[in-house]
Amino acid sequence: MSFSFSAMLESLLPVSLTHYVLLSSTLFVIGMLGLFLNRRHVIVILMAVELLFLAASMNFIAFSSASGDLTGQVFALFILATAAAEVTIGLAILVVYYRNRASIAIDDISDLKG
């Protein structure tokens, strides 16, 4: 059995919509992992959420360019705006929380424990 780099590359090409969808799925899973595997800081959770937003926008743009419809890009724009708002508020809350508790370690944050 012959194995060559170019053969493998050619079996993966050309770049199509499927590639982008797979890439965004991977990104989404990584973001998801970051959400609940992360046990250190809330700030990392915020970053993981950013990754999730990114995965979503990537999907929109991939489909938009594959179908030639710009609406997908418009929605990616809105996602961007929403993400910016979210991260602003999130970080503000974080600052206030830190000011009150002097810690943003996730394991310390369990005020809603029943």
């Binding site: 609940f36 809330v42 996730i106 809603l112 424990k113 029943g114």
Partner: peptide
Amino acid sequence: RFRLLQSGYVYHYVFAVL
């Protein structure tokens, strides 16, 4: 029993959503 579900930890909730 149900009280234990309400752990207060974010990652528990995220895991539940997932």
